[in-house]
C-alpha cells in the first residue's frame, strides 16, 4: 500500500522549468530521502506536496485520495505536516504556543466559544496542554524552554521546536526540509535519533530533504536523487551512492583528454 504518491509532477515558473515529470511513491513507515545539488528542485517538490505551489501537470495522491486540488490548510488537517529549511516559527509566540498551534486543525473551539473560554473550550485547551506536555515536550526534551519566546532560542533548539510543532499536527507524513542543516555533530545526532524515534514509535512516515550524506546513508530506507528538476536515480542508499548519474551530478564528469 502506498501512502504518498507523486505522479508526473511538472512545475514551471514562466519559462523556467523547475520540475519535469517527477514521479515517486512513498510506502508507510519509510524514511524517504530526497537529495540533489542546490537548486535541483527538492524544496519545490515538498512545496507541491504541501500545497504551497500548484503544479502545472501531474497528480499527488495521499492516503488513497487525490489531493492535487486541495487547499494547503485542508491537506494539513489530513495529516501532512511540514518543517522548513529556514525556520518558520511564529516569532511572537512562546514555544508552548507554537507547539499548540500545530494542533489547530484538530481542535474544535469556534470564535464565539473562544470569547467565553468556558466549558468545552476550556476543557479542550486543558486536554491539549496535557497532551502537548506529555507526548511532545517530554519526548523532544524541551521542558526548560517551554515558556520562552522562540525568537530568543538558539538555532538548534528552534529546529527542535519546529519539529515539535509538526508533531503536534498528528501527521501521517512528515515533510522535513533539511532538518539538520547548520547543526553541529552532536545536534545532528540528536535530530537523527528523534527522527528514528518518531518513525518507530508514532508510525509517522518521513519524507526529508538533506545534504548531510552520512545521515542519509545511516537512517533512510529509500532515496530519490533529483538534478535540474528531473529524477535521475532512485533506490536504497547503497544503490544510489554508486549510481553513475548521481556521481556525475555531485562530482562532475571525468574530463576526457
Amino acid at each position: 500500500m502506498t501512502l504518498l504518491a507523486v505522479d508526473n509532477l511538472t512545475l514551471a515558473f514562466g519559462g523556467l522549468n523547475v520540475l519535469s515529470q517527477v514521479s515517486f511513491t512513498v510506502e508507510p513507515g519509510q524514511i524517504f530521502a530526497i537529495i540533489g545539488p542546490n537548486g535541483a528542485g527538492k524544496t519545490s517538490i515538498l512545496n507541491c506536496i504541501g500545497g504551497f505551489y500548484r503544479a502545472q501537470q501531474g497528480r499527488i495522491f495521499f492516503d488513497d485520495q487525490d489531493i492535487t486540488n486541495i487547499s494547503p490548510d485542508r491537506r494539513a488537517a489530513m495529516g501532512l505536516a511540514r518543517t522548513f529549511q529556514n525556520i518558520a516559527l511564529f516569532r511572537g509566540m512562546t514555544v508552548l504556543d507554537n507547539i499548540k498551534l500545530g494542533r489547530h486543525a484538530h481542535l474544535k473551539t469556534g470564535l464565539l466559544s473562544s470569547l467565553l473560554y468556558w466549558g468545552a473550550a476550556q476543557r479542550e485547551e486543558m486536554e491539549l496542554r496535557r497532551e502537548v506536555e506529555e507526548s511532545i515536550i517530554d519526548f523532544l526534551e524541551i521542558e526548560h524552554i517551554r515558556n520562552q519566546p522562540v525568537a530568543s532560542l538558539a538555532y538548534g533548539l528552534q529546529k527542535r521546536v519546529e519539529l515539535a510543532r509538526a508533531l503536534a499536527m498528528r501527521p501521517k507524513v512528515l515533510l522535513m526540509d533539511e532538518p539538520v542543516a547548520g547543526m553541529n555533530a552532536e545536534e545532528t545526532e540528536d535530530m537523527a535519533r528523534f527522527i528514528l524515534d518518531i518513525k518507530e514509535e508514532r508510525d509517522v512516515t518521513i519524507v526529508m530533504i538533506e545534504h548531510d550524506m552520512n545521515m542519509i546513508m545511516d537512517i533512510s530506507d529509500q532515496v530519490v536523487v533529483v538534478n535540474f528538476g528531473q529524477k535521475i536515480a532512485e533506490g536504497n542508499p547503497r544503490q544510489v551512492q554508486s549510481h553513475p548519474e548521481v556521481v556525475k551530478a555531485y562530482l562532475g564528469e571525468k574530463r576526457e583528454r
Partner: peptide, 12 residues
Amino acid sequence: DRDISAELMGIN
C-alpha cells in the same frame, strides 16, 4: 507572524 506557514499548519 508568518501567513504562509500558518496556512501550511492548517489555518484557513
